[in-house]
Simulated scan of single mutants.
Amino acid sequence: MAFENPSRDKIKELLEQTKTIAVVGLSDKPDRTSYMVAQAMQMKGYKIIPVNPTVQTVLGEKSYASLTDIEEPVDIVNVFRRSEETVPVAEAAVRMKVKPKAFWLQQGILNEEAAAVVEAEGIEAIMDRCIKVEDSILLPRR
């Protein structure tokens, strides 16, 4: 059976319940899409946790080398990696100390194997959607 994203209502409910987003592949370069999206989400009140082994801090937040290094609960793992690099990220997400509610692959990123890894552990998978766009449409005044 082909992968299908959750309904808009379910995505809205997820975003309404979200406080913390771990952003895998978050760049410290302001001209990068990952930076712009994470900054916009931070400005809307979400706590951003950068996951990038090559930087110390991004957007004023400590960066972690891996998802499994994060001690605090994360609601959404938002991924800015190439499609073929997402399975190891999904495997790390299911090994986090507190499992996230959702594993979100940004627009243009699809990997059904990665989705199956997280779904097998009860984590919602969302693919090929921009979290900033979805948040702006579904929660415009948050």
Rank of each mutant, 00 (worst) to 15 (best):
I21W: 09
A22M: 02
A22I: 07
A22H: 01
V23G: 09
V23D: 04
V24D: 08
L26S: 00
S27W: 10
S27T: 11
S27Q: 10
S27Y: 11
S27L: 08
D28Q: 13
D28N: 15
D28M: 09
P30N: 15
D31W: 14
R32W: 09
R32E: 12
R32I: 07
Y35K: 05
Y35N: 11
M36D: 05
A38M: 04
Q39P: 07
Q39E: 15
A40F: 11
M41W: 12
Q42M: 15
M43Y: 12
K44F: 13
G45R: 01
K47N: 12
K47Q: 14
I49M: 04
I49T: 01
P50F: 11
N52H: 13
N52L: 12
N52W: 13
P53Q: 08
P53M: 06
P53F: 02
T54N: 15
Q56R: 12
T57E: 12
T57G: 00
V58Y: 07
V58G: 05
V58C: 09
G60P: 12
E61G: 07
K62V: 14
A65K: 10
S66I: 00
L67I: 08
T68Y: 10
E71T: 14
P73F: 05
V74Y: 06
D75T: 09
I76Y: 04
I76T: 06
V77D: 01
N78C: 05
V79T: 06
F80A: 06
F80D: 02
F80Y: 12
F80Q: 02
R81I: 13
R81C: 13
R81Q: 13
R82Q: 15
S83H: 05
S83K: 00
E85W: 06
E85I: 05
T86V: 02
T86R: 11
P88F: 00
P88E: 09
E91W: 08
E91V: 12
V94W: 01
K97E: 04
V98H: 15
V98S: 14
K99N: 09
P100R: 03
P100T: 03
K101C: 11
K101P: 07
K101Y: 09
A102V: 06
F103S: 01
L105S: 02
Q106W: 09
Q106M: 11
Q106Y: 07
Q107Y: 06
G108A: 11
I109E: 02
I109F: 04
N111Q: 09
E112G: 07
E113D: 14
E113H: 07
E113M: 02
A114C: 04
A115R: 00
V117W: 04
A120Y: 08
E121F: 14
E121Y: 15
G122P: 05
G122I: 12
I123D: 01
I123H: 07
E124N: 07
M127C: 05
D128N: 15
D128R: 06
C130T: 02
C130Q: 04
I131G: 00
V133S: 08
V133A: 13
E134Q: 10
D135V: 03
